[in-house]
Design a protein around this nucleic acid. Structure first.
Lengths: 343, 343
DNA sequence: AACTTAATGACAGCGCTGGTCATTTTGTAA
DNA sequence: TTACAAAATGACCAGCGCTGTCATTAAGTT
């Protein structure tokens, strides 16, 4: 019924110590032995007892995921990716929903790590953008990987997974430009999120490259919410010279914008093109479905976890400190169309 | 830095075994001793080491949550509630996203439980409605609590938390009736989910009570999705005698219905009232915001976990096998209005 | 005082790792 | 081939923080 390290050792014809060595990637084990042990483990469906390992070892075999994100889809996807990576490497995942704005948040994170003896932490916005968290974690010497918005790997911070919002936004904007739009407005997300800034920068860069000046009235501050989309779009569509296309900083905002346009009997996409960002289920729950940029959250999460394991695991040679960069890809659906010919 | 059972024992002036007894509600400990130990634990901020407990004990101190639900909001809320209960009782939560329709699902669940040595499982739809899962779990003697749709506690199944969809639907329908509606249509969710059936039954009961016959054309089968809402409502609004109100089986369907109505330039709520169910963020991301029934998922989850702990924990006297019943409450927002006077 | 019952403690051991040495196997140069 | 260093493995023990078992002591009861 329950398989222990002893069973594996017996089956492989080695000592339990050697099995332990194999499991922990310790040096000085012959390849042939490694194979033998691995095979025995497979055949017996051996799974090391995490509790015993945690207890015996100074190392830890679980990582944490702290979240505070109103976007449930995002959290679920991240979780899934982390879980997949954990299963693969025999780690456990500890999830910890909390409030990023609580005053004691730094202490809370430290307590969590210390009490649960975590090997490391995966940080997503807003935590990944809070320097005080990164500092505290470094201070107590705990590994962590941050998922942040950015395009160029920086040599000084090796523990990041980058999502290249800039380039993705650039591409989306190009899509609109290619459809003939030149009057394009931008609905921002929360200022605190660097993703919003990056996307805006990509947007501006694309326009500039075509020699189009950005109309300041077309840049509407806001937040990552449906309401914000409604408000922003309403404001834009009241302008004397309306935009012919709207770039919303995420799908939720886009859905709000879509809604606002409909209220004013503006046909989408004939009279107005709208694009979102993220490819959340949201973008499929509107009509017409939204053109957006697909952000593979689950895979991003997985890669963040892998990076963390690489740091964490002692006997891992693959220390090429690469920083994965993900570029969300353009996904053209029905909310965008060529600009209406002036009639 | 790290507080162990020894520190508590020393502080309280007892042996570690006695501390252990207090933690586990074992009998034969003087009240005075219990108090002493509890105080010491508090003062030292003691948290038992789950790994050590798991290792030493035949009992287990973690529970599992299996999910396969496209509704991320639901999952996140459930998770939060379970986590809260776990923290309170020193348990750990193991989450396991999976595919309910996979052929090997029963074995997968069994493997999960056995490998991770789970004390028990919290089952939500669709798992809570799969007899083969309940059977398998009983066979291997693992506790579980199911969250299911129902109104009357049944003595033979003590391990359920009930959500009284019937009564909630009854109340919602009454709300519409009180607004003067009599031509009310119903957009069903997935047939496989008993919640849909229960809500429909509550709906019908309310109509019957007022002596209103249910128009078969007004009962539209469908699924728990936006698209289904669009389709169903479109169908309804093409009818010669349109309904004046629509009861959607959940918020997502309601959002779809809302959308469809808008497409046809039907004013909500002036010309058509729409209600949803669940009070998911969805219901606030429409305009007007939806009248709905608030389903306190997080609290439901918490109570399910508590029930599980009660079963699991040996030395717990509070064995009154109560089955909590939750009745989602009517939440009136702006998508419902008195029926338009025939003009 | 004799005896029952309640309350507490001593100690082994859960499955594994980390360390220390001893032993065996392998590779390499003389 | 022998000699010898280096690599690979095993034997053994302690101990992680807790629980289970059983022995022991304190408190009641007649």
């Amino acid at each position: 019924m329950k398989v222990t390290i002893h069973d594996v050792a017996a089956k492989a014809g080695v000592s339990i110590k050697t099995v332990s060595r194999v499991m922990n990637n310790e040096p000085s084990v012959k390849q042939a032995t490694i194979d033998k042990v691995n095979q025995a483990m497979q055949e017996l469906h051996y799974q090391p007892n995490a509790a015993a390992r945690n207890l015996a070892s100074t190392k830890s075999y679980s990582i944490g995921y702290i979240y505070d994100n109103p976007n449930a889809y995002y959290v679920i996807d991240m979780q899934r990716g982390l879980l997949d990576a954990c299963r693969k490497h025999g780690y456990e995942l500890l999830i910890h929903p909390t409030n990023a704005k609580s005053p004691g948040i730094v202490q809370e994170v430290i307590d969590l790590v210390q009490h649960s003896r975590l090997a490391g932490l995966v940080l997503t916005p807003p935590f990944s953008e809070m320097p005080e968290i990164a500092e505290a974690l470094s201070r107590i010497n705990v590994d962590f990987v941050r998922i942040i918005s950015g395009s160029t790997p920086s040599p000084k911070q090796t523990n990041c997974v980058l999502v290249d919002d800039f380039t993705a936004a650039f591409k989306i904007t190009n899509h609109l430009l290619e459809l003939g739009h030149s009057q394009i407005a931008f609905l921002c997300g929360d200022e605190e999120h660097s993703s919003s800034g990056e996307r805006l920068a990509g947007f501006k860069a694309a326009l500039t490259k075509r020699g189009i000046e950005t109309n300041p009235k077309f840049i509407v501050p806001g937040s990552y919410s449906f309401e914000s989309g409604v408000k922003g779009a309403t404001q834009l569509l009241a302008l004397a010279n309306k935009p012919t296309a709207i770039f919303a900083c995420n799908d939720e905002i886009a859905a709000g914008a879509l809604f606002s346009a409909r209220l004013q009997h503006i046909e989408i996409p004939q009279q107005l093109s709208i694009v979102g960002f993220e490819n959340s289920p949201f973008s499929r729950q509107t009509w017409p479905p939204l053109t957006t940029a697909h952000q593979p959250n689950s895979i991003i999460a997985q890669s963040a976890a892998e990076l963390l394991f690489k740091h964490t695991r002692p006997g891992c040679q693959n220390q090429t400190d690469d920083q994965p960069v993900f570029i969300p890809e353009l996904l053209v659906r029905e909310s965008t169309a060529p600009v209406e010919s002036e009639s």
